[in-house]
């Protein structure tokens, strides 16, 4: 105890306390911050009714209306097509957890089979973009460089050069495209989920969509994409580079200056 109380007055004590306080604050923040993970909907799991309409009545009708006509809490689903349902539900965006600027991606709740049933039901309400087949979204053999040009013209303004995401107005955002499934990329372009505009086959044909998917697979794939220069630093450009330069570059150099200028240990003093 005596040792502790003596060290309490050490010149560096304040620094230690500060670091400790920062760690505690950070820990508390992490503990209380809204978790991204959605709690699995028990009702969905306990469902035994096989039909999409019944799935819909339980999971979706509260916001989108009993017949998909929409309400104040959710848009009409008439004519959105099966592709939109597949995208929204398979990325976990639907069912939405809470109202907000934007419905985030989260853990999906419905199985593939259920999504198929839901899609079939919504598609029956009115014609719309159809869930793409594997031949449509398979990027094999597509032109990566052309995809890059298309991406920079159509997508990069919101999703960043290599799909790291970006900000929109009033808290909305374009999500990062890291490791997004080719099928979902295709569906997103086709249907324009939430505030994203659509890029329908009439203006961006299947081949061009495949090029874009191939490009993303090349430059934004955690297993494959190489960053020859070293750490990617988030791929966000000069802001993170500047932060890294200050903290690790200048930070390291200041540590070095302290060592160079420090007095060498004396023989007598402890």
């Amino acid at each position: 105890m005596k040792k502790l109380s003596a060290r309490r007055r050490h010149p560096l004590a304040a620094v230690v306390v500060l670091l400790f306080a920062l760690a505690v604050t950070g820990g508390l923040y992490a503990a209380f911050a809204p978790a991204d993970k959605a709690k699995a909907d028990d009702s969905a799991q306990s469902l035994t009714i096989e039909e999409g309409k019944k799935l819909y009545a339980v999971g979706c009708a509260t916001c989108h209306g009993t017949g998909g006509q929409g309400s104040t809490d959710g848009p009409s689903l008439v004519g959105v097509g099966s592709a939109a349902v597949d995208f929204q539900v398979s990325t976990g965006r639907m069912p939405a957890q809470q109202p907000g600027a934007q419905v985030p991606k989260k853990k999906r709740i419905y199985s593939d089979a259920d999504i198929e049933k839901l899609s079939a039901y919504i598609a029956s309400l009115g014609p719309g973009p159809v869930t793409p087949t594997k031949e449509q979204y398979n990027p094999e053999g597509a032109d990566i460089a052309k995809g890059g040009e298309l991406f920079r013209t159509n997508c990069a303004q919101c999703h960043n050069f290599t799909g790291k995401g970006g900000a929109l107005s009033n808290g909305k955002y374009a999500p990062p495209l890291d490791d997004v499934d080719p099928k979902q990329i295709y569906e997103a372009m086709q249907t324009g989920p939430q505030n994203m505009p659509s890029f329908p086959d009439t203006t961006m044909p299947t081949k061009e969509k495949q090029d874009i998917i191939a490009y993303l697979g090349e430059v934004n794939n955690s297993d494959k994409t190489s960053t020859p220069g070293g750490m990617e630093l988030g791929g966000l450009g000069p802001v993170t580079e500047g932060l890294f330069g200050w903290i690790f570059g200048l930070g390291a150099l200041i540590v070095v200056t302290i060592w160079v200028a420090a007095r060498t240990a004396k023989a007598k003093k402890s």
Binding site: T153, N154, G192, P197, S198, P200, T202, T203, M204, E208
Partner: peptide
């Protein structure tokens, strides 16, 4: 001219909610 395909655009190519350059 649609920049993606370099084809001329027709009104029916462009649905509500889409974006074309």
């Amino acid at each position: 001219m649609n920049q993606n395909t370099m084809q001329p655009l027709r009104p029916e190519d462009i649905p509500v909610g889409s974006l074309t350059f």
